Amino acid sequence: MKNNEQSKEKLTPIQFEVTQNNGTEPPFRNEYWNETREGIYVDIISGKPLFSSLQKFDAGCGWPSFTKPLTDEEIIEKADHSHFMVRTEVRSKSGDSHLGHVFDDGPGPNGLRYCINSASLRFILKENLEKEGYGEYLNLFSQK
C-alpha cells in the first residue's frame, strides 16, 4: 500500500506519514505510549498481530515499547542510516509499513526494546479479541 491514494484515504495524516514515509510521531503525544490495559497491538495496515501488552513496558521514551514481538514472522528488521545515526528499523512484513526501531537497551531476556509508533498500530482490548477476530490470542492472558 505504498504511497497511493487508497492508503491516504484509509489513514490519518500521521498514520500515513509514519507507515508510508518512515516518519516518527511526537513522543508522549501519541495514542498508546501510556496505554496499560491488556490486549494486543496489530498492524494498522494489514491487521496482523504484532505485539502484546504482556511484553509492553514503560521505557520513559514516550512511545510504546515492547521486549519482543508476538511472532517474528510479521517483523522485518532493516539497517537504517538516516538522521546521521545507525539504527535498526522495524517494519511490518505483511503491511510493508514502518513501525519504529529496535534498540539493545531493553529489560527483557534478549535486552531488546522495540520502540514503536502508535500511529502504526491498532490496539485491541483483551475483552474484544474474540469479537474482532483475534480470539486465538485470549489464551496469552490466561497464562499470566
Rank of each mutant, 00 (worst) to 15 (best):
N4I: 08
S7M: 13
K8V: 00
E9D: 13
K10S: 09
T12Q: 09
Q15S: 08
E25A: 05
E31A: 06
E31R: 01
W33N: 01
N34Y: 01
E35S: 00
R37I: 03
R37F: 07
G39I: 03
V42M: 08
V42S: 05
I44S: 05
I44Y: 04
I44P: 00
S46T: 13
L50C: 10
S52H: 08
S52L: 08
S53P: 08
Q55T: 15
F57R: 01
P64W: 00
P64V: 02
S65C: 14
F66C: 03
K68A: 15
P69M: 04
P69W: 00
T71C: 13
D72M: 13
K78A: 13
A79T: 13
H81N: 12
H81I: 05
H83D: 12
H83Q: 12
H83S: 12
V86H: 14
V86Q: 13
R87W: 01
K93G: 08
K93A: 14
S94L: 11
S94T: 09
H98N: 07
L99E: 02
L99Y: 03
H101R: 03
H101F: 06
G108D: 11
P109G: 15
N110A: 15
G111Q: 11
G111K: 10
L112G: 02
Y114D: 03
N117T: 03
N117H: 08
A119L: 06
S120W: 04
I124V: 12
L125D: 15
L125G: 11
K126E: 13
K126W: 08
E127H: 06
E130V: 15
Y137R: 06
Y137P: 05
L138Y: 06
N139H: 15
L140C: 06
F141H: 03
S142Y: 09
K144Y: 02
